[in-house]
Nucleic acid binder design. Structure first.
Lengths: 199, 199
DNA sequence: CACTAATCTGACAGTCAGTGACAACTATAG
DNA sequence: CTATAGTTGTCACTGACTGTCAGATTAGTG
């Protein structure tokens, strides 16, 4: 029962979410202060005031304390893609759908940059992030496939390829963004990356 | 001293390589028979006839017993890219450089397919494979960057994007290849993927 | 308010990957 | 042959993660 069931009311779900947010928040503090690998789950549990065992009832893995929100972002991204007019070409629709999650990064202020930097320099986190991207991938492919013409036999393959390439571009752009210390505008980095790939 | 030092002679290096191959071989047998996660390192060690501690002197991680060769493949790939004539466009050069590693998959016979299937269905292995691809990425970018024209300010970014997209296409193609049970030709799957991305 | 059933929690014990340290052994160089 | 350096087994340890169980808490019902 670690997974968050469908967003619903109920007082129990509400407190559960609150505890989850509290754990994630204090975990991030400790991670940013002492590093991800250097921080033990027991330290987080002690800080929150619960047993280490109970922390694992809210997060399946230590990585999820950092990346837990990414599943929701993927859902939003897929919804945004579905909302794009069918007149748009695949790449254009994907690019526009990415605007929303991208804007969220900016609104986070400096916190998103610190998070992204930690994410870029911690192998375990990068690996977990790739798995989350794989989830995004699976969500986006069926929606994108509907925009594709040409032989149906390769339609799924082509959808996979485009989605995968687009997420790669996002990764590359975010990487460069963190390397620049957040100075270069993320949107234009992404545009450059996409244009290069399609050349 | 887990990393394999430069390929060189010496009786010590030779026996080291032999032991390493022996461990990898028996590990693969056990993995394919009982699954990756269900097989413990101690079981592998017992089968080979050494202590569990010693196995970790040949492989840094359990995943490396499966993916250890990928570093060498990356080196070959980078060398192949460097050998491509400068007249070829970036995508074309990358595609041709991939021919060699692709052929190696075929020559392996059914073994490569079983391996790829296990790799596709084991999250821990997929994560480790992504890290290896990141290494390939770093090897390929400087070589590819030399083929790019246009503003130098974005040259590195564009190189990263193209390499990343190409490796994504490779992933997508291999995935479809394993899903088809090895029936669909890998090369044409890769071509379809690349063409879709550049559309 | 009282009751029931689901849920949450701490505590304990366990598995497994991976690391550090040390002493014994073995190959190699000089 | 000897000093040196690499290899190995063993012991002990950390830390993520899991199973279980008994007791506390609480949502919803009558």
């Amino acid at each position: 029962m670690v997974n968050t069931p469908g967003r619903g009311g109920g007082l129990r779900e509400l407190t559960r979410r609150a505890v989850q947010a509290e754990i994630a928040s204090t975990a991030m503090e400790l991670f940013l202060a002492h590093g991800f690998e250097e921080t033990t789950v027991d330290q987080i549990a002690a800080q929150v005031g619960m047993s280490g065992r109970s922390v694992f009832r809210y997060f399946a893995t230590k990585e999820d304390m950092v990346l837990g929100e990414m599943r929701a972002i993927g859902d939003d991204l897929a919804a945004a893609l579905q909302r794009r007019p069918t007149s748009e070409e695949p790449w254009e629709a994907l690019r526009r759908a990415l605007d929303e999650p991208l804007a969220a990064l900016h609104s986070d202020g400096g916190k998103a940059l610190a998070r992204a930097t930690m994410l870029a320099t911690t192998p375990a986190l990068r690996a977990a992030q790739q798995q989350k991207h794989a989830q995004w991938h699976e969500l986006l492919v069926p929606t994108l496939a509907r925009r594709l013409r040409g032989p149906t036999s390769t339609r799924k393959l082509r959808a996979h390829a485009i989605v995968s390439a687009a997420l790669s571009c996002l990764d590359v752009a975010v990487d460069e963004w963190t390397r620049s210390g957040g100075t270069k505008p993320l949107e234009s980095l992404l545009d450059s990356a996409i244009q290069a790939v399609r050349s």
